[in-house]
């Protein structure tokens, strides 16, 4: 038997605009692969965030809408309620989902909207040049925390959105993974697939939080960035299925 390694049909053959070592390329591919595998390409509608992944429609070869900053889940709610037979997902970063859009995140989850959410946690605002995000680690240097994030200076603690959503009855599935290693990439694929199957089975709100490297903003090489996830981020954001 011949095993061919082919890119998913839902992924366009184009050059990437993402930085080297960025996690978005892997994640875009994983989402596309799940959509292919579940045969959803002709009924899926994606919602792209504001942030580096706003250009997701350049990579995915299926219907995609832009959303204002933080409003992806509100837009997805409007799409899903208008066309319940479609499969609707959002793809959002931490600034988008956990900061400016936290109200939409909380209430979409609490309504139990039958949606899938891919939450990319890279502990910073990437596109705007590396400001502190709600998920920024204690001590992590950003342009707006030049001495490192410090709760003593009113900069708060890393916000654990998955844990925050876990008690809500509308939430059917929560999992956190990391794409720092091939093993984690395979795990992430399984989680995302499960989050889409849940929607097909009308189980309610499903979210997969993915710890994803941002070497440019973290001022690390791709390898150092992956190590930082494994050694530091996972302590604050433990991996695994949080709710099922």
């Amino acid at each position: 038997m011949k095993n061919e390694f082919l890119p998913p049909k839902s992924l366009r053959d184009v050059n990437t605009h993402y930085c080297s070592g960025c996690g978005h390329g892997i994640l875009h591919r994983l989402v596309a692969q799940v959509i292919d595998e579940l045969g959803l390409r002709e009924r899926v509608i994606g919602v792209a965030p504001v942030g580096c992944a706003v250009l997701a429609y350049n990579y995915w070869d299926f219907d995609v809408s832009e959303a204002a900053h933080g409003r992806a889940l509100a837009v997805a709610t409007g799409i899903k309620r208008s066309r319940p037979e479609k499969i609707v997902f959002t793809y959002q970063g931490d600034g988008d989902l956990a900061s400016i859009g936290i109200a939409e995140t909380l209430h979409t989850a609490n309504r139990g909207e039958n949606l899938t959410c891919v939450f990319v946690n890279n502990a910073c605002y990437g596109m705007t040049g590396g400001q502190m995000a709600p998920t920024t680690m204690i001590g992590q240097k950003t342009t707006t925390t030049p001495w490192g994030r410090d709760p003593a200076f009113g900069e708060g603690w890393p916000l654990k959105v998955s844990e925050l959503l876990a008690p809500l009855k509308g939430v059917s599935y929560l999992a956190r993974s990391s794409i720092s290693k091939p093993q984690g990439v395979r795990q992430t694929y399984q989680y995302i697939k499960k989050a889409f199957i849940n929607q097909i089975e009308k189980k309610g709100f499903s979210m997969v939080e993915v710890l994803s490297p941002c070497p440019t903003i973290w001022k690390k090489t791709p390898i150092e960035a992956a190590k930082w996830i494994d050694q530091e981020m996972v302590k604050e954001f433990p991996l695994g299925v949080i709710k099922e």
């Binding site: 509608i45 919602v47 809408s65 959303a67 204002a68 409003r71 509100a74 837009v75 997805a76 709610t77 409007g78 799409i79 899903k80 309620r81 208008s82 066309r83 479609k86 109200a103 939409e104 909380l106 209430h107 309504r111």
Partner: peptide, 26 residues
């Protein structure tokens, strides 16, 4: 048909953005 009491005015206008995206009247 679909009615949602939104959590905010921002959510409400963005929900109708989502509905409009699919081509329905909203």
């Amino acid at each position: 048909r679909a009615f949602v009491q939104a959590e905010s005015e921002l959510a409400a206008i963005n929900m109708i953005f989502g509905a409009a995206v699919t081509g329905v009247r909203t």
